[in-house]
Design a protein around this nucleic acid. Structure first.
Length: 271
DNA sequence: CGTGTGCCCTGACAGC
DNA sequence: TGCTGTCAGGGCACAC
């Protein structure tokens, strides 16, 4: 799954086909993903018109003309397939408009679908505690300085915490820390002001570059139209264990575990 | 409170 | 050709 750039790419792809269109049919192929589908999902969505799409953190937003927003999360393995030629076993939710079909496919079912009043989106519990959008005005060195002050937890795990910054995942945290030259294991409260000042623009740059490329692709991610995204060969740290650091500083990318997940970094240039 | 651990689920891949 | 173990983009419920 999709981290922020992949969700953004998905939302843009869906918007081209869904905005202004009326949903003619909704089909649930099972009762739940991570949690049950909303009991009124089929009733509310059938016949509704999609006014616009959006994104908050790693959640996609489908705004309807009935005062409700369908919120989807792609979990680890979710993707939308547009006009699939053949059904897949893990197409759990199907939407139809006059002209197109949309299948939410999620083999691991770590994703979710919710229905929330549009006017109260920011009060929805999973949204209420989210930190600022990394591509919005709220992510500044000053924000990080304040949010990380006194924290003994590693900077890597703090950046994965959606309450501090909303939308970063394992790939782009590794990439941003490599770009900024910061050791992932460093206690967050001890990352210096100049390092944070360097980190913020690197977070923004790596996310924007990935969105420009249509979302980085791993093995089961595809753009909504079904084409594969770019293969992840452009990463500098993520997945490059044992390979030479692209800074040619003599460092070899190491892989360690933090919070039960892998971190890749260069021990020479990340301090 | 903050922090650390384990689990949800399927599939891909490596090694025997 | 199986089998088994490990790992995968996330989020949350617990236990201290």
């Amino acid at each position: 799954m999709p981290e922020l750039p992949e969700v953004e790419t998905t939302v843009r792809g869906l918007a081209a086909f869904l905005e202004g269109e009326r949903i003619t049919r909704v089909i649930l192929n099972r009762p739940d993903l991570r949690r049950p589908f909303p009991a009124d999902l089929v009733q509310v969505m059938t016949g509704a018109t999609v006014t616009s799409l959006g994104r908050r953190a790693k959640y996609g937003l489908v705004h309807l003309d009935r005062g409700a927003t369908m919120i989807f999360h792609l979990g680890m393995s979710g993707r939308w397939r547009i006009d699939p030629e053949t059904p897949e076993v893990h197409d759990h939710l199907l939407l139809e408009t006059e002209a197109h079909r949309f299948a939410l496919c999620d083999p691991r079912r770590f994703g979710s679908v919710d229905l929330v009043p549009t006017a109260a989106l920011e009060d929805w519990p999973p949204f209420a505690a989210l930190g600022p959008e990394p591509l919005g005005p709220g992510l500044t060195p000053a924000h990080l300085k304040a949010a990380l002050a006194g924290k003994t937890q590693s900077i890597k795990l703090c950046l994965l915490d959606q309450r501090i910054v909303a939308g970063l995942g394992n790939i782009y945290v590794c990439e941003a820390l490599w770009r900024a030259g910061i050791r992932p294991t460093k206690p967050a409260g001890k990352v210096s002001g100049p390092q944070l000042a360097r980190l913020v623009p690197e977070i923004i740059a790596v996310l924007e570059a990935s969105i420009r490329d249509g979302g980085s692709s791993l093995r089961d991610y595809a753009r909504p139209d079904g084409e594969l995204g770019y293969f992840a060969s452009s990463f500098d740290a993520y997945g490059r264990e044992g390979e030479a650091c692209r800074r040619d500083d003599g460092g070899v990318i190491q892989r360690i575990a933090q919070g039960g997940r892998s971190t890749w970094f260069c021990p020479v240039c990340q301090r």
